[in-house]
Amino acid sequence: MQKIRIAEILLESSPTPFWSILKQIGVDEATGILPRWYPDWRQWRAYDPWDYVPLSNYKRMVEDAGFKLTVIEDNPPMDKIMYGLPGKEEQLESVARLIENMGKLGIQVWCYNWMPDGWLRTRTALQGRGGALTSGFYEEDLKDSPPRLGKIDKATLWRNLKDFLSFILPIAEEANVRLAIHPDDPPLDEINGVARIMNTVGAFDKLIEEFPSEYNGITFDHSIFSLMAGDLVSVVRHFLEKKRIFFVHFREVVGNKSRFEEVFIDEGVTRQFEAMREYVRHGFYGPFRVDHTPTLLGDTMSVPGYSVLGRIHAIGYLQGLFRAAVESLEGDTNNS
């Protein structure tokens, strides 16, 4: 039976017992972040984290722990690229070096975003099911918060994204690295004068149509796309048919674009099983990863949403969904 490919994110600077647990529960791939801890690049600048030496050493550490490093979900500074500010050329060169080095090291997917102010949560100690700690976004919490880097409109963001892809896609094609853009989180039109453009299904269609390269694709975040569209299953099918889903974040939220809270994966309101059947039917087996889980009693988290026990629970649930989808489709074939 085909096995689901889970590339769980490793946030630690060195192996931990959680890494061993991941191996024990059947996780063989990893999503990595840039090794900013090796060496102290902010002080000495011997290397940048996206240079070959630190990235190669990081990959070796991950592989020695038993994982294949499949995805990098991190990036050099890109604020000047997004805003079109002086100094963007240096930032473009840093991104190019990252992609080239990923290619040399055989790291297949780069997950990036086009959010000038990043992904946002305004509350990180909400009480979820049974008192589990969870996070949420409430737009009203930001009403008096000025934009960190200044305002920017949709037209400027689109123009700068097109310029960026015109520059980086040929480099990615040469390096054999697929670019998987993450949707805006939250998918609002703007936040305090800072526009957001990757916040509708139509926006992703537009990006794919304007840059039809097979290296230009999507990180399909289930919770964010569920806030964009009423029928998530049809959206999964739509982008699978276009062969533009390169990486999947599987998680659940309840609420709407302006007010939502993250919940356990089994509390979700989306048709998860039908969505998983679409992945299997179209021959997409991963990489998947779970994301933003509540924190259980006695558990620890270094980053809100990335506790140990919560992710173990979500991984098991995801594995069960996948196996059920495979067996149900095999049953459909046998009965036809």
Rank of each mutant, 00 (worst) to 15 (best):
R129P: 04
M61S: 06
A96Y: 04
S328W: 13
P187L: 05
S234A: 14
K143G: 00
I197T: 10
D117W: 14
W114V: 05
K151T: 15
D189E: 15
E327L: 15
S302N: 10
F260L: 08
S14V: 12
V27A: 06
T156W: 02
F288I: 02
Q24F: 04
H282F: 14
E241N: 14
R237N: 15
G310N: 13
F211K: 06
V235M: 02
R60P: 00
E278A: 11
L227K: 01
Y215P: 03
W37K: 07
R259D: 05
W37R: 08
R45M: 07
F246M: 12
F284W: 04
A314G: 13
P146G: 04
I208K: 06
G298Q: 02
L227W: 03
G136A: 05
N176L: 00
H313T: 03
L179V: 09
T333D: 09
A65N: 10
V194P: 03
W41T: 13
A132T: 08
P17L: 11
D189L: 08
G118V: 13
K23I: 01
I107E: 04
H238S: 13
G305T: 02
P54C: 09
R159W: 03
D221N: 14
V248Q: 04
E327F: 11
Q272I: 00
A195D: 05
P35Y: 08
P39L: 09
P212T: 02
G283R: 07
I224A: 10
G84T: 14
F220C: 12
K154L: 02
I6R: 05
N256G: 10
G310D: 10
A203G: 08
V280A: 04
I312E: 11
Q43K: 14
L34D: 01
V308F: 15
H222P: 00
G131P: 00
E330H: 10
N101W: 13
K104S: 11
D40V: 06
R289C: 12
N75A: 15
P15H: 10
K154Q: 11
F260N: 13
G130I: 02
N199W: 02
Y112L: 09
V62L: 09
T270M: 12
D28L: 12
M78W: 07
Q108I: 00
G217F: 10
K257C: 02
